[in-house]
Every structure is written in structure tokens, then in C-alpha cells.
């Protein structure tokens, strides 16, 4: 198996989960109602847990450092997350739309990975799939309700969808290893995933009465997978490592 190709896949998935988990956790205490604080907080725990499990595979299977080191001590340039997950939480409509777009991609990605030839990843995918199912249910429920609630909520949903879509398409930025991963049966590839995702998301969005934004290829926000990030990732990582940096020799 091509180690570099697999590590690249695992890093981008782990980094996505860690960073979106970080963002979701920011809703703890300030959500639109207590039930939503609880929901975003639950999803944050799951996402951070997924990232830990993926870093653990990188550590045990490929001999890289421990999950805590991989998450808390790599530089911004080494992160492979897409820019969608880096964006600040903004207002609730944006966070909800991001969660909807991202989690449908996650659900389909993990579904594809249940048949991966990389056994630890296939096993993890089977477990994670069951958790993401609930994230998607949450996103779909709120999207439908808010797209049909009031004039304001509908307008907000549509505006956030239009804003987020070029970033969401950046989830599927191809790596240099696509053919290798497909050929070795590790992962079915970003192109296939994007196709499945677009079909799924378009159905839900139009059923909810919103317009699916059309995005020119040139407007898609790529770069994250290759280490080119938005202005927000650096400050996010600085915040995340604030305590560790006080005394890097210490155990916390």
C-alpha cells in the first residue's frame, strides 16, 4: 500500500474533524436555545473523538507521533483541512448550513470507507457512520424547519447557503494520490464522493424550498488540502495550543 497516499487521506479527514469540532464547541453556552447548545456540543465531542481515532491510526499503523502531538503540535502549513471548517461560527444560520453541507459529505465518505482495504479505517468507518447519521438528522430537521419558518429564517438559510457553497465544494479538492487510493481500494475518490453529495444535498435543499446555488469551477475555494488556508486557521491553532505552549515539557 502507498503509505503517503493513505496518510494524506487520514490527515485531511482528521484535521477536518478536529477543526469543525473546535468550531462546533464554540456554541456551548451561547446557542439559540439550550437544546441547540446541547446538540452542537454533542456533535463537537463526536468530531473531536473522530479526529483522535484517525490520528491514532496514523500513529499506530504508520508510526507517526501520538494523537496529542499530531493535533496540538503541527504547524498551520501541515494541516490538511478544507477551508470550510476553518471559518468562524458566524451567526447560527451559517453554522447550521456548514454543519448540513459538511456532515452530508462526512456521512457519504464514511459510508464509502466501510469497504476500505485499510482495515482499521473500515472498522472505524462502521462505527462513525452510526454517529454521523444523527448529525445529519439534526441538520436536515433544522434546515427544513428554518427554510420554512419565517421570511427572515428562509432568507438567512438561502444567504448562508450561497455563501458556504464555494467553500463546501472545496471539501472535494483532489489530492495527488486519487488514482492510487482508488486503485488500491482504500477510498473511492473525491470525484465520486462529490457526485453522491451533490445529488443528496440538492434533493434536500430543493425539497425544503431553497435554491441550490450554481458555483463556477473557478469560484470554488480550494487549497486547504495542500496546506493553503484561510486567515482563520492560524488564530484557531494558536488558541488551541495556548495552554500547551506555556510549558511544552509538561504533561497536562
Amino acid at each position: 500500500m502507498n503509505t503517503e497516499a493513505i496518510k494524506d487521506l487520514l490527515y485531511k479527514m482528521a484535521d477536518d474533524a478536529l477543526v469543525i469540532g473546535h468550531r462546533n464547541s464554540e456554541w456551548t453556552g451561547i446557542g439559540p436555545m439550550l437544546e441547540e447548545d446541547l446538540a452542537f456540543s454533542s456533535m463537537a465531542q463526536d468530531k473531536v473523538g473522530h479526529s483522535q481515532a484517525l490520528y491514532q491510526i496514523i500513529h499506530t499503523v504508520f508510526g507517526e507521533r501520538e494523537p496529542d502531538v499530531l493535533a496540538f503540535q503541527r504547524s498551520e502549513k501541515e494541516f490538511k483541512c478544507c477551508q470550510l471548517v476553518e471559518l468562524p461560527i458566524g451567526e447560527y444560520d451559517f453554522s447550521l448550513i456548514r454543519h448540513f453541507l459538511f456532515d452530508h459529505a462526512e456521512a457519504l465518505r464514511y459510508e464509502m470507507l466501510t469497504t476500505s482495504t485499510l482495515m482499521p479505517l473500515a472498522q472505524l468507518a462502521k462505527k462513525v457512520r452510526g454517529e454521523i447519521k444523527y448529525h445529519v438528522m439534526h441538520a436536515d430537521t433544522f434546515l427544513k424547519q428554518l427554510a420554512n419558518g419565517s421570511e427572515e429564517s428562509k432568507a438567512r438559510m438561502q444567504a448562508s447557503l450561497n455563501y458556504a457553497m464555494p467553500y463546501a465544494l472545496g471539501i472535494f479538492e483532489k489530492s495527488a494520490f486519487e488514482d492510487t487510493l482508488i486503485g488500491e481500494g482504500v477510498f473511492g475518490g473525491e470525484e465520486k464522493l462529490q457526485h453522491l453529495w451533490l445529488e443528496k444535498v440538492t434533493g434536500i435543499v430543493t425539497t425544503a424550498g431553497l435554491q441550490m446555488p450554481q458555483v463556477d469551477e473557478a469560484k470554488i475555494i480550494y487549497g486547504g488540502r495542500k496546506g493553503f488556508h484561510s486567515e482563520y486557521l492560524k488564530s484557531l491553532l494558536d488558541e488551541m495550543t495556548e495552554v500547551t505552549r506555556i510549558d511544552p515539557s509538561a504533561e497536562w
Binding site: 439559540p32 436555545m33 441547540e36 447560527y92 427544513k144 424547519q145 428554518l146 420554512n148 419558518g149 419565517s150 427572515e152 429564517s153 438567512r156 430543493t206 425539497t207 425544503a208 424550498g209
Partner: peptide
């Protein structure tokens, strides 16, 4: 706006 929209689904599932 979130709470109001959830309480007042004025065009619920029009489609």
C-alpha cells in the same frame, strides 16, 4: 429569529 421560525412554521413544507 430561530425560535420564532421554529414556533411559526407559516409555510411549512410548501413543497
Amino acid at each position: 429569529w430561530v425560535r420564532e421560525a421554529l414556533l411559526n412554521p407559516n409555510e411549512k413544507y410548501a413543497i
